[in-house]
Design a protein around this nucleic acid. Sequence first.
RNA 1: GGUCGCGUGGCCGAGUGGUUAGGCAGAGGUCUGCAAAACCUUGUACGGCGGUUCGAAUCCGCCCGUGACCUCCA
Length: 494
Amino acid sequence: MSKYKENKLYIFNTLNRKKEVFQAMNPPHVGMYVCGPTVYGDPHLGHARPAVTFDLLFRYLKHLGYKVRYVRNITDVGHLESDADEGEDKILKKARLEQLEPMEVVQQYTNSYHDSMARLNVLPPSIEPRASGHIIEQQVMAEEILENGYAYESNGSLYFDVIKYHKDYNYGRLSGRVLEDLISNARELEGQEEKRNSVDFALWKKAAPAHIMRWPSKWGEGFPGWHLECSAMSSKYLGKRFDIHGGGMDLLFPHHECEIAQSVAATGKDAVRYWMHNNMVTINGQKMGKSLGNFVTLKELFTGSHKLLEKSYSPMTIRFFMLQAHYGSTLDFSNEALAAAGKGLVRLMSTLKVLDRLEPGGAPGSLDIGEFEKKAYGAMNDDLGSPQLIAHLFDTSRFINSAFAGNDSITAGDLERLRHLFGSFVSDVLGLTGEEDREIGGLVSKLVDLLLNIRLEVKKKKDFELSDRIRDELASFGIEVRDKKDGFEWEIKG
RNA sequence: GGUCGCGUGGCCGAGUGGUUAGGCAGAGGUCUGCAAAACCUUGUACGGCGGUUCGAAUCCGCCCGUGACCUCCA
């Protein structure tokens, strides 16, 4: 029995600004598309948020029994820089600075992105298409839009005719923009003469002579407009109409608004049924930006090599921290908050280990396992309420520890159920892994055991000076010793 | 300037028209030779001013603060 039949998953659909029951078009199949990174630099905190958010959705949908095709693109066709730099392409610029071939830059940072995502335990998507590998598809879609009369050619470039489109459809219904306001608020920018109107956007852009990334087309040598890749690739792999499209709130306008316009102009229909947007990350209450000097890459977080960081934070701590906030809220990073999340994570993960060793007792004890199950699913069904889910896990964690300490009990049947539930929510749904189980060589393990067994004998002789010395020195290597009634436990701590 | 969002206790962060979020930090206790871990108990709260209501932190208005976006920039 698939769980999705008995769970009503509500998700906040940006299109209607309401929580709606998620109903797959063709259950058990679900198609979901998420805007991936432009690979011109190491991934930063801002990249981790959508990755973790939609990884949570991907995992939960799979947990519910859906067969999910998750498409997340890599934008490797450079896009133009806005500030100061006279419209220079990001990837080209990086390539010149680092004296690399543009595709070399793309490969390097794609690898870097994959590496950081893997460390965050973000599952790889089912398909990860690259914009540069779908030039034809983008040209075909541009052609369809042109044929339908919603685009025009101008000096070797192709532009989307927003005004024309708005007469037949509704430009702005996702982002809540009013076209007239957009037109009246438009800034005077250079290189706009080719457009009929300032609100028009490029489907295909003629390449300037210096532009290395270029492809032939019937309109001349050039490259696709930024918004087009997502429309073309999503429809290629998910069909003309699919279930979920996700991305950061910063992409809502113009990117996603333009995607809608493109799909409707090409096919006459909306492609996406549920639009989901994760909120942004701030650092010490400030927006993250290169100019503000608070731009932190994931590598820097993992190693602690940034002047704002007091220490390094493990990938799992970052992941846990993000999951403790709802994806729709802004999330503020600070050393204090990260450190707190790190400790909370250790607590949760050690409960998982305790649960493994917990023995059932005859008495039912205080845990209502059915209630726990209901609350856990209820939290996730409410627009991915990972913070509430985690709160319920902590509540249950207290019970597990109490039972382990002999102050509570659980029946064998309930224990089995609890292990399954607790484990699958922590590991499968939230995607949290016990990274503190680092590789300990068998030899090290034996040596520590030997030392602690000797310490046990020393303790029996009440030589606490020596026994404390052993414990303290082990602690200085990062080995935490915990004395038990008739033995000991130890663990390597970060 | 325009559009949209947010403002919760020392820190982070849920939630709700009248009943405990949770984590971290703090205080007290149990256990322990001492620790650690665990468990028990515990304080501090809803930006400001008005309004609606029997009752609002939760709804409405204004103000302040803050964030995102504003056309080829994730």
